Amino acid sequence: MQNSHSGVNQLGGVFVNGRPLPDSTRQKIVELAHSGARPCDISRILQVSNGCVSKILGRYYETGSIRPRAIGGSKPRVATPEVVSKIAQYKRECPSIFAWEIRDRLLSEGVCTNDNIPSVSSINRVLRNLASEKQQMGADGMYDKLRMLNGQTGSWGTRPGWYPGTSVPGQPTQDGCQQQEGGGENTNSISSNGEDSDEAQMRLQLKRKLQRNRTSFTQEQIEALEKEFERTHYPDVFARERLAAKIDLPEARIQVWFSNRRAKWRREEKLRNQRRQASNTPSHIPISSSFSTSVYQPIPQPTTPVSSFTSGSMLGRTDTALTNTYSALPPMPSFTMANNLPMQPPVPSQTSSYSCMLPTSPSVNGRSYDTYTPPHMQTHMNSQPMGTSGTTSTGLISPGVSVPVQVPGSEPDMSQYWPRLQ
């Protein structure tokens, strides 16, 4: 039975679970980093996980050691009161100082060594604690504590007292930064006198190289990059290397530039699409467009005044059976039934097929058609009795279509119309 579990990581490298990497692998990681390889490249070359490479390099940059820390136990506290007071002093002298600059000053002034120097995250935590204590304490208590930490007896009751030896409130920041720059020169002199001055200088240079600022491109470089971006948004590694040799930039910087440029292009394309949609959409909808001609068919113009009344309900007709019959029939052209047409008796099958359309009241044959006459024609229609054979009435077949029909004066039988409509 094995005491430890061995495995293979996602890159194909072998590791022992819970145990640190061998010293030979750690040394190779540092050597590759000094030669300029990126952590992701080191991870692929040595088949070590990216997190492990970053952790080893980060500890090497901070402490200069590649040895693993002790497994188990607690780390001794490195942010001692003396170190905290120095950090507060540096922050007062130059409020814009960075944590890694404070760390360098602690090393250069001999406050800490490589073994007990606090990390950048520890210094940031100390600065946050100082800021929170400043908010919790009152103004007087804060000034007393700062005077105690600074070891001075001057008056701290006013704002300019934060910067000793100065009279203009805006000047101390520059003086403090100048003092810090002077301390940086002392850093070089002190570290050069040490035993491991060369190694420390190499480590600091490598650290500065990794902690780079934003790349500033010249106009020629920007023009070359934009020209390549117009050709393709995704250049391959050969195109990037050719462009890197042409404009004297690292291939990694060119790759990052193209990634950022593609993101910018997507944002601009989104804005262009929004403007295009806004320009195509009308600002207001016309009133006429809300009524579609496919839904509402136009009603033909009436030929006679009587045809303006298109349904039985508008003429005072309360018989719903006839109203439904007229509205359900398709529109037909106007025609006239003459008196000489043969009077065919209704076929029983045809009569039964339209039995649902006729009223059940037996008085329908005896009703006159003056009910369908509009009010303004009552006088004219009353002067001509319906009993004469020459009287013409208008029957409504569908809305908007008038059918003048000659009705025999002897017997106005409704059943004569249905064979004609089939």
Rank of each mutant, 00 (worst) to 15 (best):
G7R: 04
V78N: 03
Y90M: 14
R128Q: 15
R147C: 10
D23F: 06
P68S: 05
R103N: 06
E101N: 14
V111H: 13
E31G: 14
A139L: 11
Q89L: 12
Y143T: 07
Q2S: 10
L57G: 00
R69P: 03
A139C: 13
I66E: 02
Q10V: 09
G13N: 02
K134N: 10
K28A: 10
P39E: 05
G73Q: 00
G12V: 03
I71D: 02
G110R: 13
L149T: 06
D41Y: 12
S119R: 04
R92Y: 05
G72C: 01
G110L: 15
G18C: 00
G36S: 07
S49Y: 01
P118Y: 01
V83D: 01
R44E: 09
G138S: 10
C112P: 07
R69F: 10
S122P: 01
I123G: 01
L46Y: 02
V84H: 03
G51I: 02
G18S: 01
G138I: 09
Q47S: 14
R67Y: 09
Q89E: 10
S121I: 02
I87M: 15
S96F: 15
G141Q: 11
S6M: 06
N9T: 02
M148A: 07
L46E: 02
C40P: 04
K55A: 02
R59E: 02
Q47P: 03
V8R: 13
Q10N: 06
M137T: 12
A88L: 11
A37E: 07
S121C: 05
I42K: 01
I71G: 04
Q136D: 09
K28S: 09
T25Y: 07
S43G: 09
R26A: 02
N114C: 14
A79F: 05
A33D: 04
L130V: 15
R147S: 10
I42S: 01
E31F: 11
S4N: 12
L107H: 06
P95V: 11
I97A: 15
D144A: 11
R69K: 07
P22D: 05
N124G: 05
L106E: 02
V16D: 13
G73T: 00
S43Y: 01
P22E: 04
P95C: 15
G12I: 01
L130A: 08
I102N: 03
K134D: 10
Q2E: 10
V8N: 06
S85D: 13
R69V: 04
Q2M: 09
S54M: 04
V126H: 02
R44A: 12
D144S: 08
S65I: 10
G7C: 06
Q2V: 07
K86R: 08
P81W: 09
S74Q: 03
N124V: 03
D104H: 13
S96A: 04
G51N: 02
I42E: 02
I97M: 06
N124P: 03
L11G: 02
Q27W: 10
I102S: 10
G138E: 15
V83H: 03
C94W: 13
M137A: 09
K91M: 00
V126P: 00
D115F: 12
Y90T: 12
V111G: 12
I45Q: 07
R59Q: 10
P20I: 00
S85M: 14
S43K: 02
E62P: 00
P76I: 06
S132D: 09
N150D: 08
R77N: 03
K134R: 12
C52P: 03
S96G: 15
G72K: 00
S54H: 08
A33K: 07
A139N: 12
M148N: 15
N50K: 00
A79G: 08
S85E: 14
N50A: 06
V14T: 07
L149F: 11
P39S: 08
T80C: 07
I42W: 02
G141E: 13
I71E: 00
K28L: 07
S65Y: 04
